[in-house]
Nucleic acid binder design. Structure first.
Lengths: 337, 337
DNA sequence: TTGAAAGCGATACCAT
DNA sequence: ATGGTATCGCTTTCAA
């Protein structure tokens, strides 16, 4: 493999000179034009490729960003895409540190330090997982930012979508369509974003002076793998409560509701309007196409990496960014008949 | 940041000794137990983290695998997950080199070399893109493997799913259900995997002595962004040809067919059976749930990384691996009435 | 305008 | 059983 020394030898200059030229610092070192051109030409002809490792070793920096988080969710690709948009423009690269178990997180944290990453983006981690990262990286003051994490912290910036607003919009849209018996289907009423969406729903219902009873809410136990239980929960909810509309805590849940409803002979949207949350690709070509609250995953990835890059340059106080969501109206909702 | 020298100083030994101990080579260097324990304890108490960059610099190797390819497809996450399963167990890491334009590919190829990656996995690249990678990496004899690439090459291994067999199975299943007017809907009859799936369909139809007319095939122009055109193409196809079943070249296409059919008042599966291809997550909770040919994306990722890791150890002749697919029977297909 | 050389942190060989 | 040291490829300061 060709080194700068090889080029230097062939060009009859020192490797220091080669370094300056190849890093575009001829000005600073005032290397003359001819030498410059010769070095570049030789590097080219030799097929020289900089050894990024040696460079990092010397400078003590890498241009690599770590992304820590699970690979389950359908939307994580979109976030990563957003991250890549920004970091690749700034000549940074992405190292994936996928995590499933808590062990993976510990390992990932250690890897970040060993690899001397420039910074780390944590995606949808639990409090416990995040604490592992923090304690490992803090001592090496490696910047950390959060995206799509449901908890905020004062020691690091976070980018999320404005789910509360989105839930309000979705609920209001149903109300404007004339619906009053509006159910909420979720898999978790207590934690994270599900809770925020629930809160938005409650807020809007309350604003419109609609009483929400306990049985207007259908909480399907997502942890439970026996999906029949979920189906039955939805079935009972639809048949007993007979809502004219349901706002769902996520797109997959909305799809399930539609599925169960149709099997019950309930027509969507004539008999039942359904709204999802996330705006995943497939909601566009499901049957019927799904009205949903679209989260700006790509933008979230972009924004969070912009923040990270700026923190790599210089430490700054933690920011909290809520990106707006958008209600996408499609065929799963209509006015009450 | 703590270095081996720091540990050595504190332990009153040389950094060479520390290196041996921390790399578990005490045996080889015959370091005595006490020294060993002391060094480890000090490293621990100082919170030492190996500098992987320096290590790579010295050894000339990295334990990083590059993944080159677009981030569009819904299934690429699954492939990456499979890759990670295997490489993380072997203490390798993943660097993502997402590519959109041809420029990205050139850049990615260069990055692979500059970063001295241990090897590269190319995902669903075009011939042109792959050639760029090859020409850049060949001179540095960096191993390359292909996954989900529609072209095979004698200079590198490739892992794909057995789409021909899958298409045959899907078609045969429809035939066994009693269907004879079986259409094929695709977005490309000429290239890549779409062509293979088409071939499988034709093969099975021919085996069963069913004549396939030109108008049994509906090719929706995927390149065309005006999705109305696609919808209309499907609509015309369904109304004019009146198939009792359609086998689709992909899951999204199948979803669209179902959508158009339902808007035409055609009931799925009573009036029309539909089969997709890929087995994406959402086909499980669409309405109706979709019968589809499931490709083993995770396994493909695992297999391809196993091959890559073995090639990193020692160069071996190119292999071609076709992983079996599985027909998943769900609610979008039924016997002909 | 350029060369020489120190040094980044770890590895591994050669002495002792 | 351990210390000393050359080395990996590059960056950057200091001299010339």
């Amino acid at each position: 493999m060709i080194t700068m020394q090889d080029i230097a030898d062939k060009a009859g200059v020192s490797k220091g000179t080669v370094s300056y030229v190849l890093n575009g610092k001829q000005e600073k070192a005032r290397i003359n034009q001819a030498t410059c051109a010769r070095v570049i030409a030789i590097a080219e002809s030799l097929g020289y490729r900089r050894n990024a490792i040696a460079q990092s070793m010397k400078t003590g920096k890498t241009n690599v960003i770590g992304i820590i988080g699970g690979l389950h969710n359908d939307y994580c690709m979109a976030i990563i895409k957003g991250i890549n948009n920004v970091v690749s423009k700034n000549n940074y690269m992405i190292k994936l540190l996928p995590t499933d178990k808590i062990e993976d997180v510990k390992n990932a944290a250690r890897q970040c330090v060993e690899q001397r990453l420039a910074g780390v983006i944590c995606r949808s981690l639990s409090e416990e997982e995040l604490e592992i990262i923090r304690s490992e990286l803090a001592s090496n003051n490696m910047p950390i930012v959060l995206v799509d994490n449901s908890f905020s912290h004062d020691w690091c910036s976070r980018v999320i979508s404005d789910d509360f607003e989105g839930a309000k919009q979705a609920t209001e849209y149903l109300l404007e369509l004339g619906h009053r018996k509006i159910g909420f289907v979720t898999n978790d009423l207590i934690h994270g974003f599900s809770k925020v969406r629930y809160d938005g729903y409650i807020k809007m219902m309350t604003d419109w002076k609609i009483k929400v009873q306990k049985d207007d809410i259908c909480c399907i136990d997502h942890g439970n793998k026996i999906s029949n239980t979920q189906q039955n929960a939805i079935k009972d909810f639809l048949t007993l409560k007979k809502p004219t509309a349901v706002f769902c805590g996520s797109d997959p849940i909305a799809m399930k509701v539609i599925n169960v409803a149709q099997s019950l002979g309930i027509n969507i949207p004539q008999d039942l309007s359904v709204i999802g949350f996330a705006g995943l690709n497939y909601t566009f070509f499901s049957s019927p196409t799904l009205t949903t609250v679209k989260q700006p995953f790509v933008k979230m990835g972009q924004k969070v990496s912009e923040i990270l890059l700026s923190e790599i340059k210089e430490k700054s106080p933690a920011k909290e960014i809520k990106l707006p969501v958008e209600l996408i109206i499609r065929d799963s909702t209509t006015t009450i008949k």
